[in-house]
Design a protein around this nucleic acid. Structure first.
Lengths: 129, 129
DNA sequence: CAACTGTACTACGCATGCTAGTACATACAA
DNA sequence: TTGTATGTACTAGCATGCGTAGTACAGTTG
């Protein structure tokens, strides 16, 4: 289900956080769906359970999952207003990236077009599973 | 000229790279403009010259500056096609961020509007220095 | 020459990522 | 109850990377 790059400079638990977060925000992992157990995922990835737990702890802290001792870890349904600061940070990041793309020679109209395509690509469609 | 966050998890040299890159892509630092000398900047920031040199080396490797032994380090003029891979990576990052914003409840029309404002805000204007 | 530039290298202290191992509490089914 | 699943919390050790300190060398400029 997941793949890690052992040679990356960023730590494995951080990669895990990003991968799982991506699956959540792209609705591949549905709300309240159960995530792989700490030990199971650790076994699959042949890494230490502590590393998985660290990733889950981080995801819980960021509001993307919730964990119940004895039951498991689950995708947390998005709550409006719960990620307000995060949303502002993302907007800053977005504009920063666009600035850099402009500097590198990208055309404004081109950027807009790609974004619009991306924004409306899921309208009425099914996720390819 | 620069400010560093000693408490950040990301290393100082990496922060420096980002800050300087931002100044370059926002045209605060002009092409062929000389950057502060390694030892000078180190003294100003009260950090080690090696850390500055590491940041400069990284910036040179990424194609944002060039260094000439005995003379100094300078802003490298942007060359079309020179940052092609970087541009593709930025586009991926851009779409990834938008996906997350949508997941967090942002409105597509709102996102487009903000981007357009950003794209055309510099038309005929001056950078606020 | 002197004084500036970038560059290269070693050594040390320290923080962090990751692993290994152990342990405990809860949930659930036999 | 027992067994097995779950998450969680520790300790300990090792490797890596960051940052500092210090030294040294080469090219540029006056």
């Amino acid at each position: 289900m997941f793949e890690l790059d052992l040679r990356s400079r960023s730590p494995m638990y951080e990669q895990l956080v990003e991968k799982i977060k991506d699956l959540i925000i792209n609705n591949v992992l549905k709300p309240d769906e159960q995530l792989p157990a700490v030990r199971v995922l650790a076994s699959e990835l042949t890494i230490n359970p502590n590393t998985i737990q660290k990733a889950y702890r981080e995801l819980e802290h960021r509001g993307y999952i919730y964990s119940v001792p004895g039951k498991g870890s689950f995708v947390k349904p998005a709550v409006a207003g719960d990620h307000d600061a995060r949303l502002r940070a993302l907007e800053n990041e977005l504009l920063r990236i666009i600035s850099e793309m402009l500097y590198l020679g990208a055309y404004p109209a081109d950027i807009i077009t790609r974004i619009q395509t991306h924004l409306f690509k899921d309208e009425g469609g099914q996720p390819d599973d």
